[in-house]
């Protein structure tokens, strides 16, 4: 039991950091109804890393921790470029939803990685790892890195919270606030960087689940931003503990387990909501 706790303490802290930032962004994403954006940015970041690892052959020893500098730079560059393009698309009235363009970006990034990895040896392992991540093998160095990056992004969003919240609350309007395009770009760019770092630890699927699931559950019960964030965080903590415990005990991969526990929570809260319709406020 002690060994379990010792083994799980680093993954626990890592997951808490991931939940901290992603629950917040998740509420934005749900309100903007651009559910896809996170998966698309994550997949683009992964494509960036893949491009880097194909270009710079020596970067091929990764598996545990080894994101090389080139891979990192490419990931960030790809997401920031995507952030710029999405902002550009958003600023015009187009007859197709932004979500469609985001979705197509995702498909290109995902299959683009497959094309590139087809030529690289051991491609299938990479694909699986990209999707699944490896929270259990996270190091303390990585955790400190996450804390610093998320801290900075969190600070940016805290200082300018009025701008970011107003932008999201009036997302259907083209120009809700002054310099909307700049703030929109900052939103996507900071989100993109958060996604790059999150995904390097948790994998695409886990991060997607952390974004969407707690935010959806809190949207069922709460209206204000603050209460949604705190409910999401509380729920995320409990679920992480349960999920890590289950995955240790049953010897199954941790990420899918946490996701499924979150799913069960959503089902339960849907039932609660159905039974107690008056509790909504």
């Amino acid at each position: 039991m002690n060994s379990a706790i010792e083994f799980m303490i680093a993954p626990f802290f890592a997951t808490m950091l991931l939940i901290g930032i992603n629950v917040y962004f998740g509420i934005h994403v749900i309100k903007r109804e651009i559910i896809f954006i996170d998966i698309a940015l994550a997949q683009l970041a992964a494509l960036g890393a893949t491009v880097a690892s194909v270009f710079f052959e020596h970067a091929h020893n990764h598996g545990h921790e080894g994101t090389t500098l080139e891979e990192y730079i490419f990931s960030v560059a790809f997401t920031i470029l995507a952030a710029y393009i999405f902002t550009l698309f958003k600023s015009r009235k187009l007859p197709i939803p932004l979500e469609a363009l985001i979705g197509i970006g995702y498909a290109i990034a995902a299959t683009g990685s497959v094309i590139l990895l087809d030529t690289a040896a051991g491609g299938e392992v990479h694909v699986k790892e990209m999707v699944e991540g490896a929270i259990l093998w996270v190091s303390w160095g990585k955790i400190i890195e996450l804390a610093i990056v998320f801290g900075l992004i969190g600070l940016l969003h805290f200082i300018y919270r009025r701008k970011f919240l107003a932008l999201t609350d009036d997302y259907s309007k083209t120009q809700p606030i002054k310099h909307a395009m700049l703030w929109d770009f900052l939103f996507y760019a900071s989100f993109g960087i958060a996604v790059v770092h999150s995904v390097s630890v948790g994998g695409i699927l886990t991060i997607f689940a952390f974004l969407i699931l707690p935010a959806s559950i809190s949207a069922l019960f709460m209206k204000s931003w603050q209460s949604r964030i705190f409910l999401g965080w509380g729920l995320g903590t409990i679920v992480t503990v349960c999920g890590l415990y289950l995955s240790w005990n049953l010897d199954v991969p941790s990420a899918p387990t946490i996701i499924l526990v979150l799913g069960v929570c959503l089902l339960l809260s849907l039932i609660v909501k159905k039974v107690l319709p008056s509790s909504a406020s």
Partner: peptide
Amino acid sequence: ALGLGLAM
């Protein structure tokens, strides 16, 4: 997400 998680 749940479908992919289960598939994994």
